[in-house]
Each structure stands twice: as C-alpha cells, then as structure tokens.
Design a protein around this nucleic acid. Structure first.
Lengths: 204, 204
DNA sequence: CTAGAATTTAAACAGTTGTTTAATAGGGTG
DNA sequence: CACCCTATTAAACAACTGTTTAAATTCTAG
C-alpha cells in the first residue's frame, strides 16, 4: 500500500526531525521517536535501517532547507548585492522564527560530523562561483567597499542574522526576555541588519 | 591524604571538562572520563556522586570563566564604553582561541538546562546595574547613539565576537579554511569588531 | 478468493551505561 | 603495633538502548 507506507515513513521522519533537532543525536532514543510518531519501535529500523542513517537523512534535509534558499538568493544575477543581503536576512529570520532549533541543530551536526558534510554538500563550489561573490569582488575592485577577506563579510551577515536564535536560551536566562519580546526583537532586525551591514562596509 | 585526594578529584574534573565540552553531556560516558583521567571508574561516583552532578560543576566553572571576565570589564567605572568594547573583544577572542569548544558548550548547556542556570547565576542583576549599561543609556540620552533596545547592541557585540567560533566547523566545511587561516581571521577581528560596532552605532 | 509480498507487532537479544557493593590497600594517630 | 578513616579496586547490578527475529496482520495481484 503506497500512501499508508509513505504515511508511516513520513511520520517517523517528522518525529525524528522534531526530536533530533531539539535534543541532538546522542540524547535521542529510538523509542522516543517511535512514541512521538505513534508507531511500533521496530518500524524505525524497518524503514531507515538504523538510527544513524535516519539521523543523516534528517540532517541533510534540514541543511537542504536553509542551503537551497540561500543558494537561490546568492545565485540570482538580476539582483544587486544590497538586495541579496536584504533577501537573505528576511528569509533566514522567517525560517528560523518558525523553527528555532534549526540553526543550533545544524551547527552542532556539522561540528559532530564534518566529514559527512564534506562528502554530501557542494556548498563551497556553489557559493564560490555565485553572483553574490562576484558582485562582492567587483565592489572591492571598484573600491566601493574595503578589500577585506570576504569571510568577514559572510560571517557578519550570517552571524548578525543567526546568532540571536542560537543564543536565545542564554538571552532569556540572563536578560529575562519573554518569547514575544524576543520575536519582536528579531523582527526589528530584518530592518536593522542590512543597515548595519551597509555601515560596516565603510570600515577598512 | 590531602594532595593525593585533590589530585584525583582534579584529574577527574579536568578529564570531564575536556570530554563534556567536546562531545556534550549525553554523548559522554562515565567510562570515557575515567579512562581519560586514568583512574578507576568507581572514583567518578565516589568524588562527584553522579555524572549529572559532575556535569553541573563543569558547566558552572566553564561559565564562571567567561562570565566573571565580562563582568569585571563591564563593571569598571574608570573606562569608557568604547574601551569596554575593545577589552571585551580582545579578551573573548583570546579565551575562545584557547578553548574553541567553550562557546558552543555553554550555549548548548544553557539550552538544555535553562532552569539550572536561572537558579545558579546572577548575571542579569550584575549586568543591569553595570557601568556598561549605564554608560550606554547615557549615550542614548545624550543622543550620541540611537535609542535602540540595548539587547541589539549586546547581541551584536557578542555575536560578532563569538559567532566565528561557533560556526568554525561550518566555515571549514563550506569554505575549506585551514586552522591557521581561521586563527588569522579571528585575530584580525580584534581590530575590526570594535570599528564595526562603532559604525553600526550611527544607524537608527 | 487466495497465494505471496509487504507491513506491523510483541518479544527477545546482546551490548552499553550509570551506579553500587564489598573487599582491599594505605596512611596517619593514639 | 593496632585502630580507624579514607582511597582505590574489581566485580556486579539493573536499567536502558539499538537492533533483530519470528509470528501475525494487511494488502495486492492474479
């Protein structure tokens, strides 16, 4: 039976995604996944062979979601560098607001399995030849922005956008910020981060 | 026996710190700690009662190291706001360069045990009354900087400083950066982050 | 309708893990 | 030396965990 089959497999992957993202690989038990999915324990191995393979599928799909979005934006040859920055900030803040553990999950997953990601992702080559990098290099050449290592620029853009989500628990513990106040704050950053990035580009 | 006793207890805590910081709580086995410390497995429970209690001690000491440093800098009434920013950036880049898992470990620990940190730390009250916050508020009042939620300012300062370390594995996977190139890059940020922060303060 | 394949289930298995136990060794004190 | 308290050890324990098995159920095709 096709759709029932797919339904079970999907239920498992959905449950696994939720639990892996919130607790990480080691703290997640196959029995937790089975219970969350509402299926028999053995079906996890029936459909995905092992906990590790299931985790790798979840990792890759989670990365795909964020990476394909950024690649689309960065490759677009019809937009300016400024527009790409604004698009990136808006998209990432929206995506991370809907799934607050996603950034932390991916950073931890890469840290724990760097070799796996090196094999499975071609982000490097995708980005190096992207319109984004070319426009950045041209702006440097035209002396519109200082000749810094572009890694700084990318780290600043991603860091200013993503770091609030990674540090949300720390912010809430140390500053007593409510969920609503946090969300208001990151929404405000949709406007601010592009302005900040622009003003930072005057520094050499 | 005093010093031998202390030596064993310290060996365990050192080993536990190393392993907890690199692999996290769930992935760390008490047997790993015992082996790394070169002591009998039972001594872990003899000195620290449980894996969880040992972890909590390691967490608190790790946090203490970073937090006490920042509190000292932020409370200093003899320094300007600019100087506090520079001091913070230099100190954190130095500390995180020496222990690259520290930031990730603490952020994950707080995420997994927010209640524990709420009970155990008084960072909030320490910071709210600090010279740092007062100087920031006075600069806002004097219209030297725009009247933004100070959380933005703190997130930007910490984010620009700490995010490279959190994302180091991701950077190395996607951009193929070597350890040396990474270290050169963060060293360069000691100079750049304070400049960037200053230029961002002109944005309203 | 029925045989065969796919799916689901309860149970078991083997290895791991945190913790405890009971015995032993060691070292300072009276 | 004899005593006692502390430290250390090997072994065991019970619970947990990922995975497999074999039987039962459900579905599909002929």
């Amino acid at each position: 039976m096709e759709s029932e089959n797919q339904r079970t497999e999907d239920k498992i992957k959905q449950a696994a995604t939720k639990i892996f993202q919130s607790k990480g690989y080691a703290a997640t038990k196959t029995r937790d996944i089975a219970e969350e999915a509402g299926i028999n324990l053995a079906l996890v191995n029936y459909y995905f062979r092992s906990k590790k393979k299931l985790f790798e599928e979840v990792m890759l799909e989670s990365l795909q979601g964020l990476a394909s979005a950024v690649i689309t934006i960065f490759k677009d040859e019809s937009t300016t560098l400024d527009k790409k920055v604004t698009d990136f900030v808006h998209l990432y803040i929206d995506m991370l607001s809907e799934n607050e553990n996603l950034a932390t999950f991916l950073l931890n997953s890469v840290r724990e399995n760097p070799e796996f990601f090196i094999k499975k992702t071609h982000l490097l080559s995708e980005l190096k030849s992207s319109s984004f990098i070319i426009q950045y290099q041209e702006a440097v050449k035209a002396k519109e922005i200082p000749p810094l290592n572009p890694t700084h620029f990318i780290l600043n853009l991603i860091g200013l956008t993503v770091f609030p989500f990674i540090s949300k628990p720390m912010v809430q513990v140390t500053m007593g910020t409510s969920d609503q106040a946090f969300q208001d704050m990151v929404e405000e950053r949709k406007r601010l981060v592009p302005l900040w990035i622009k003003s930072m580009m005057t520094v050499k």
